[in-house]
């Protein structure tokens, strides 16, 4: 674990992604887009049909999240990562279109890890189950697509210093594998 977190701003590019390594703590600021199960279906259906996506995907970072509703006057309700493997079938296609970062929790498929190497993209872990704390990092939140999906709609978020950990870097390394090598006693 690095002692000092790395401050990063979106949009990301090849160079920024290549500087990151497994286990790095990152404080991410800038624009993110939420997207989870149903939104990914629609995004990829749109991509297959050659239609434009509802947000600029080049350099973008997707947060696999569906927030709780905001109370009146609040920017957002509680927000945090959902388990990422369910988005694995869609992620390589989005990386091919320019997606540079994904935020979630849990292991990715070998296909997604290899796509991250190919397209120089990074997978960040956000801590699950600390959603009240995470909400403090959200400065703006607005639905930009698929409002009918409720919590699964795509929200455009502006975040400030969202605390993350690099799970998969552009070299194909995996924090979960390395953690097991260090701590397994079986």
């Amino acid at each position: 674990m690095t002692s000092e977190p790395i401050r990063l701003e979106t949009p990301l590019n090849d160079e920024l992604c290549e500087r990151l390594s497994v286990g790095d703590r990152v404080l991410l600021s800038g624009v993110l887009y939420t997207g989870r199960d149903a939104a990914h279906h629609r995004l990829c259906d749109a991509a297959v049909r050659g239609e434009p996506l509802p947000f600029p995907v080049q350099g973008a970072v997707i947060f696999y999240a569906g927030p709780a509703p905001a109370k009146p006057g609040a920017v957002t309700g509680s927000i945090g990562p959902t388990t990422s493997y369910r988005m694995d079938p869609f992620a390589p296609r989005l990386m091919a279109l320019g997606l540079k970062g994904m935020i979630g929790k849990g292991r990715r498929s070998p296909e997604v890890v290899s796509a991250m190497k190919q397209y120089k993209a990074v997978y960040f872990g956000a801590i699950g189950g600390i959603a009240a704390l995470t909400a403090r990092c959200i400065r703006e939140s607005a639905v930009v697509a698929y409002e009918d999906l409720g919590p699964e709609a795509i929200f455009r978020l502006v975040v400030f210093e969202l605390p993350l950990v690099v799970i998969n870097d552009t070299k194909g390394r995996d924090l979960y594998d390395e953690a097991l090598k260090t701590y397994s006693r079986t």
Binding site: K105, G125, I127, L175, A179, R185, T186
Partner: peptide, 9 residues
């Protein structure tokens, strides 16, 4: 197993 909090070990 060594999985640890959030799987970070």
């Amino acid at each position: 197993l060594g999985i640890g909090p959030q799987g970070y070990g």
